[in-house]
Each structure stands twice: as structure tokens, then as C-alpha cells.
Amino acid sequence: MNKVMANDAPPPVGLYPHARKVGNLLFLSGVGPRKKGSKDIPGVSLDEDGNITAYCIETQCRSVFENVRLVLEASGSSWDELVDVTVFLTNMDDDFATYNKVYAEYFASNQPCRTTVEINKLPTPIAIELKCIAVIKE
């Protein structure tokens, strides 16, 4: 099993790779909206204690999708090779409609299997995280 670290993506927040290749499958670790080289999170406003004061789910969605693309490309795969996407939202009631609209833009041509679940919180002050599986064409 080969570990993949994507140089252009933000680093993982723990001791794990961005992805692992197993045969012709690529398993991505959870990907959030952070940007490489910055402590700012697109679409998130924090108070001085690090608590979320406001956020834009659309901005976070677009940033997450871009980070997934960076990991896929660094791994020898691509957006069109995604076969399964698990989405974690921290506020299904308020965010699902916007997330679903943005998701439809990005996945208009490739429609992988998808599961969306609401969770209490994520390890960083974000409202969305994706866990993906893709194919690597040899």
C-alpha cells in the first residue's frame, strides 16, 4: 500500500497520509476546506478563542472540492474517477440545500455513490469534510 502526500493540498491535521493506493483503488483521508500555508479557513470566521462566529457553507464546499481534486491529481487519479463520496456536515438543517446545489455543479458529469451524514463536530472549526474513494487508471 502506497501512501500519498499531496504537496499542493493543506497538510493533514494528524499522523496520516492524504491518501493510500491499494491496487487500482485510491482511498482519501478526510478532506476539509483549509488552505495550504494559512491558518484561515475559507468561509469561516472565528473569535479570539477559536470559536466559529459565522461561516459560509458554499465557500467551504468549493474549497473542500478543490482540496479533493488536489489530492486526486497528486495521487495519479482525477475528479472523474471518484466512485464513492462520504460527506460529513455539522448542520444538516441549515446547510444541506446549499451543499447539495454546489455538489450538483461539481458532479454533473461524474456521479459517484454518495452518503451524507450529520455529525456533531469535526476536529477543526469547519462545517464539512469529505471521505472519498477513486479509481486509478493504469
Rank of each mutant, 00 (worst) to 15 (best):
M1I: 08
M1W: 11
M5Y: 11
M5R: 06
A6Y: 03
D8T: 09
A9S: 06
A9T: 00
P10T: 00
P10D: 04
P11S: 08
P11G: 03
P12V: 09
P12Q: 14
V13E: 14
A19G: 05
R20D: 11
K21H: 12
V22M: 15
G23Y: 15
G23K: 14
N24S: 09
N24A: 12
N24M: 13
L26V: 04
F27P: 01
F27V: 03
S29K: 08
S29Y: 08
S29V: 02
V31N: 00
G32M: 13
R34L: 10
K35C: 09
K35G: 04
K35V: 04
K36I: 05
G37E: 09
S38M: 15
S38H: 11
S38V: 05
K39R: 04
I41Q: 08
P42D: 09
G43F: 10
G43M: 11
V44A: 08
V44Q: 07
L46C: 10
L46E: 09
D49W: 12
I52D: 05
I52P: 03
I52V: 06
T53Y: 10
C56P: 06
I57A: 09
Q60K: 05
N67E: 03
N67Q: 06
V68C: 03
R69Q: 10
V71G: 02
L72Y: 05
S75E: 04
G76L: 15
G76C: 14
S78W: 10
W79L: 08
E81I: 04
L82W: 03
L82P: 00
V83S: 06
D84Y: 12
T86E: 07
T86H: 05
V87L: 03
F88I: 00
L89M: 05
T90C: 14
M92R: 11
D95T: 03
F96D: 01
F96K: 04
F96T: 00
T98W: 15
V102N: 05
V102W: 07
A104G: 07
E105P: 02
F107W: 05
F107P: 01
A108H: 11
S109R: 10
Q111H: 10
P112F: 12
P112M: 14
P112N: 09
C113Y: 15
R114W: 12
R114I: 05
R114M: 11
T115D: 14
E118K: 09
E118T: 01
K121S: 09
L122Y: 08
P125Q: 07
I126P: 01
I126D: 05
A127F: 07
I128G: 00
K131A: 10
K131T: 01
C132G: 02
C132K: 00
I133Y: 02
V135F: 13
V135T: 03
V135C: 08
V135H: 07
K137P: 04
E138V: 01
E138W: 08
